[in-house]
Design a protein around this nucleic acid. Sequence first.
DNA 1: TTGAAAGCGCTAACAA
DNA 2: TTGTTAGCGCTTTCAA
Lengths: 348, 348
Amino acid sequence: MNKRVTLKDIARATGFHVSTVSRALDLNSRITLTEDVVRQIREAADAMGYRRNRVASGLRTNRTMTIGVVIPDITNDLFPPIVRGIESVLEPEGYASIIVNTDNLPEREIRLVDVLTERGVDGILHAAPLRTDTSISGLLRQGIPVVTLNRRIEGSTVPYVVNDERAGIEMMLRHLHEAGHRRIAHIAGPQALSTGAVRLEAFRDTCAALGLDEKACPIAVSERFDDDEGRRCAAELLDGKAAFTAILAANDRLALGAIDTLKKAGRAVPTDVSVTGFNDLPSLQLIEPKLTTIRIQHFEAGRAAARILLSMLLHPEEEIATETVLPVEIVARESVAPPDNRKVKKQA
Amino acid sequence: MNKRVTLKDIARATGFHVSTVSRALDLNSRITLTEDVVRQIREAADAMGYRRNRVASGLRTNRTMTIGVVIPDITNDLFPPIVRGIESVLEPEGYASIIVNTDNLPEREIRLVDVLTERGVDGILHAAPLRTDTSISGLLRQGIPVVTLNRRIEGSTVPYVVNDERAGIEMMLRHLHEAGHRRIAHIAGPQALSTGAVRLEAFRDTCAALGLDEKACPIAVSERFDDDEGRRCAAELLDGKAAFTAILAANDRLALGAIDTLKKAGRAVPTDVSVTGFNDLPSLQLIEPKLTTIRIQHFEAGRAAARILLSMLLHPEEEIATETVLPVEIVARESVAPPDNRKVKKQA
DNA sequence: TTGAAAGCGCTAACAA
DNA sequence: TTGTTAGCGCTTTCAA
């Protein structure tokens, strides 16, 4: 249980002053020291097992080399790749990250952002903030740099990185349209989350652009992005009076839940009803039927946001990209087939 | 961009001394202050939006209220629930966690544990350390409390929380035995990881206990706990001369990969070959055939380890549980069926 | 019960 | 090029 080695200890051992030791150990010090002195000090530091106390240095410099990462829930498959993407950029630069899970609860978000600021994080990466801002304006007032992922803050100068969700929904709807579908239902995501709202809007807009009748495109709105809500919304759609030959779900989990309900209702996928997802979760590869979906770049979103935050920290005066929209792509698999028009008529 | 409010600011505003302010704001201060003074100070602090600077208080008290969590990889489905379990215990007590991903690489582990100690974490929760200790003895020398999860450190006093893996393997092997299987192959996990080694050992021991012929129980050892290695090992087993009617895989991913290879080789699961997993990943529910597996308690393991660490931090003198073994249970689903003896004979 | 003062370990402006 | 000194914001011992 050795006590920790401090600069003072090294100073005592080498005969130099603490400030000299500090400078010798500072990799990007502007001040030039005699090569030999630096060597002596570094060797002593190594031998004694010195580790810089970042708490002390953070207090002095006001930089903790720690950033805060705010996510809804790490057990949601979307976020681990984002976290690793962030880490892949920040870690080589010497930053560590404190991760907090908000569960999309405003009170939790407020409390947890306090947890981060109390610890003096140098900046915050905020993945999936709520649609009504709970904590970001407060952070800006404190002068803490913030970059959001997954969603932009409207009418604000906060830089953001998003996936091109509008394009994704549009591509998917056109894909179904080209396969011959004209009656396409949508299971929308929670409207309290930007992803849910944006995708629904894009769905409506594209329906209009394609000249699809609004009544032929029924919509069920989910409360959460999960299987259960997918099941519930699919049942709601089946119970409705509008017939449909395809379901475009706002994410993969909703799609999987919907497929489950369809199967239980005796509707085969994709023979009777086509179903599509959004996100391209890794686990989809093993699930039958293999889901047609939109691939978004989780890892890359984390990287991009981290790079922006980094440049805000290192070069505060420089211009930065305030808006980054990552391209998405469609992954056509087995859950889409042309509609069976005979059946539709019968049903309608 | 207000500057942060400090104790000094509150002292100036209220007319009291900083030390008085500090005491008034310290919830578990032993020192008694006049009720009215406390109220005045607290009100001023609230009004001014004071947040304690934990960097400064950490420097003074040597307690950062931050703990380090070391995991192999957050994108591995096992770990998010562990992380949330940890958080569920530590967060209410005011602790934040810095999470690092080692990717099971010793050099990374060493570097990242430095990242944690440099930041003065009060303790470390180490999930899945390597079999040969890379960082734990160093932490103990520095007097940093450590609890390991998933694996124990042999011949050491470090408290650990593990799942009862031996029992899991034994239950599963007996389950297959009772179904009539006598030629059971094992796809073992990486032997550099304790989970891989322990499960293999338990497999061998239980085979012996059941009186199964060693030659009837071929073993393929994987390099990683993933689908690809499951595929490769299954192919290796199929190419081998030993016939088998079941594969007991060391985890779910290996099992899923194996099923893929079996299908492609024209062997139906479970009709021709039964396959079992370990861990009970949530995504299994949607994958066909539904895998028979062992359910372990990820979330609860995180909670238990965090509770132990907490008591080490708060009551260093008290006795703590050095060994916690969480029970596992078998989840019988559809990937196990009685062997078709005719086929085995033909093949053997 | 409150105030004064020291100091945690480090960095950086200033001096030599 | 190196040393001196002050101080980041907080806690805590000692004194009043």
